[in-house]
Design a protein around this nucleic acid. Structure first.
Length: 316
DNA sequence: ACATAGACCTGTTGGC
DNA sequence: TGCCAACAGGTCTATG
């Protein structure tokens, strides 16, 4: 479920509770999530101090004293609930609904933290995952080794897009979703980014290459950063606000311009088209057929525009 | 090399 | 109200 901004928000929510403290007890309530827990999962964590939390792509990584790393992935439905020592309700991180005293049957892991707090991992669909491995093995870890660049780091540049896009025949949607290229974008934010960049999800990625497309690549880079940055900010504000009763974190209160808006009028002033949904690569793509013609027309084109300029003549 | 489909597993939603 | 089909934020594998 969660894409990079949600994972970042969850990590930031967990950090103050876990960082610097010992895991006094770890309850592992089943043998597997998406794949089996390592055999000695509990033993490698119990009694050890969490030195800090980090995020890599959509993974939350906890550095454990003694040189181990605890990896946590939320899959589609994973969430964390924090219970303070005082027993003051729970703060839930990772999904968008919150029910006090809700479904405990999917509580798979409970971390009992030094000082009395409790961090519970709940995941109905069990697409999430946890693992513990030596820090030295991180680069070869099957889940981490092949990951692409961090979209919010310094590596995401027009030149990077140029290199990666050149010669690719996959469509733009698949290109941006590919975790081996850029790690962290998921279905929702890819839709948002393409809409804001006025690029067609169905265009070939290779069309982003070439000198003439430099401005489009710049715009793409800027929108990726903006979309993710805004979502992280929204997540952060809910982290700060919680207090009241329950802070639900996730995509909630975040409003999307295109995702999930099939049939609604396009948000671009004067556009007048309505948002369409198409299944692409097995998942829903939401797009505006009028605004998103960059690099090749989607269904209906009317006239050219800056974003649709392509260097090569072949328009098929 | 790459594109697509299916699998994983459960919960929620919308239509009849 | 009840039932069923479609659908859901993510990966991974197998198949063309």
């Amino acid at each position: 479920m969660p894409e990079l901004p949600e994972v970042e928000t969850v990590m930031r929510g967990l950090a103050p509770v876990m960082a610097g403290r010992r895991l006094m007890r770890v309850e592992q309530r089943r043998a597997d999530l998406r794949f089996p827990f390592p055999a000695d999962f509990v033993q490698r964590l119990e009694g050890r101090r969490v030195e800090g939390l980090r995020r890599r792509a959509k993974y939350i990584l906890a550095d454990i004293e003694g040189g181990a790393v605890l990896l946590m992935h939320l899959g589609m439905s994973g969430r964390f609930t924090i219970s303070a020592p005082g027993g003051a309700g729970g703060r839930q991180l990772g999904e968008f609904t919150y029910e006090v005293g809700g479904d405990e049957s999917h509580d798979h892991v409970v971390f009992h933290i030094e000082g009395g707090a409790t961090v519970t991992y709940n995941d109905a669909r069990r697409f999430g995952a946890m693992d513990v491995f030596p820090a030295a093995d991180a680069d070869e870890h099957p889940l981490l080794g092949g990951l692409g660049i961090e979209p919010l780091g310094p590596d995401l540049t027009s030149a990077f897009i140029e290199r990666e896009a050149r010669g690719r025949r996959s469509d733009l949607k698949a290109f941006l979703l590919d975790q081996r290229i850029i790690a962290g974008l998921g279905n929702i934010y890819v839709c948002e980014v393409l809409y804001r960049t006025e690029l067609s999800p169905f265009a070939s990625a290779g069309r982003l290459a070439g000198r003439a497309m430099a401005p489009v690549r710049e715009k793409l880079v800027a929108e990726i950063r903006a979309v993710l940055g805004e979502a992280i900010e929204a997540g952060g504000s809910t982290l700060r606000d919680y207090k009241q009763a329950d802070g639900a974190l996730g995509y909630f209160q975040h409003s999307f311009r295109i995702y999930g808006r099939e049939g609604d009028p396009c948000a671009t002033p004067g556009c007048g088209s309505s948002v369409r949904r198409k299944v692409q690569g097995g998942r829903s793509t939401f797009y505006c057929p009028t605004c998103q013609r960059g690099t090749r027309p989607t269904p209906r084109a009317v006239s050219g525009e800056a974003a649709s300029v392509t260097p090569a003549a072949g328009r098929r």
